[in-house]
């Protein structure tokens, strides 16, 4: 089921994408609604699943994670039957932040975070390349990243 939004809903979402900690009263002030009316709209958008949650924006480098690498993984031809095993094993590695099954050049795209390149190499060699189903791997080191507000 698709949720229909009006212009006020869109304005509320744009504000919350920028700062999810805004109080309903502050959001309401900016979109020209009362606090209760704004609260009801946010509640409705959350219940409908449009607002799926919150994301913390942490400075990874300041936390000691200086390197993010995207890995395109192609599985070895023989092991295509054991997709579930591969997915379970790869998702259990804490440095692997995301695992996406994709259609195209690769079978999976992984987002891996590490303290530095040496640490990344350790994760790659000891945790990822040791999985029996991994065939070839392509690495791209993340230089910059931005999330955009999207079509609202």
């Amino acid at each position: 089921m698709t949720v229909a939004l009006d212009a006020t809903d869109r304005a509320i979402l744009r504000l919350l994408i920028r700062d999810a900690t805004l109080k309903a009263s502050e959001v309401g002030r900016q979109v020209g609604l009362s606090q209760p009316a704004t609260w009801r709209r946010i509640q409705r958008l959350t219940e409908a699943g449009v607002i799926a949650g919150r994301r913390l924006d942490l400075d990874a480098a300041k936390l000691g994670f200086g390197v993010t690498v995207f890995l395109g993984v192609k599985l070895a031809a023989k092991s295509r039957v054991s997709l579930v095993d591969f997915e379970r094993a790869i998702a259990a590695i804490p440095e692997v932040q995301t695992v996406e099954h994709i259609l195209g050049l690769y079978d999976y795209r992984l987002r891996v975070t590490a303290r530095d390149l040496a640490d990344f190499e350790r994760v790659l060699r000891r945790r990822i390349m040791t999985l029996p189903s991994v065939g070839s791997v392509e690495a791209n080191v993340l230089l910059s990243e931005e999330q955009r507000p999207g079509p609202l």
Binding site: T2, G49, D59
Partner: peptide, 18 residues
């Protein structure tokens, strides 16, 4: 100190028909 830079609402684009 800029470690926690902010919090953002996550939109489920699928729920909006994308």
């Amino acid at each position: 100190t800029g470690v926690l830079r902010g919090q953002h609402a996550v939109i489920d684009w699928h729920a909006l028909g994308y």
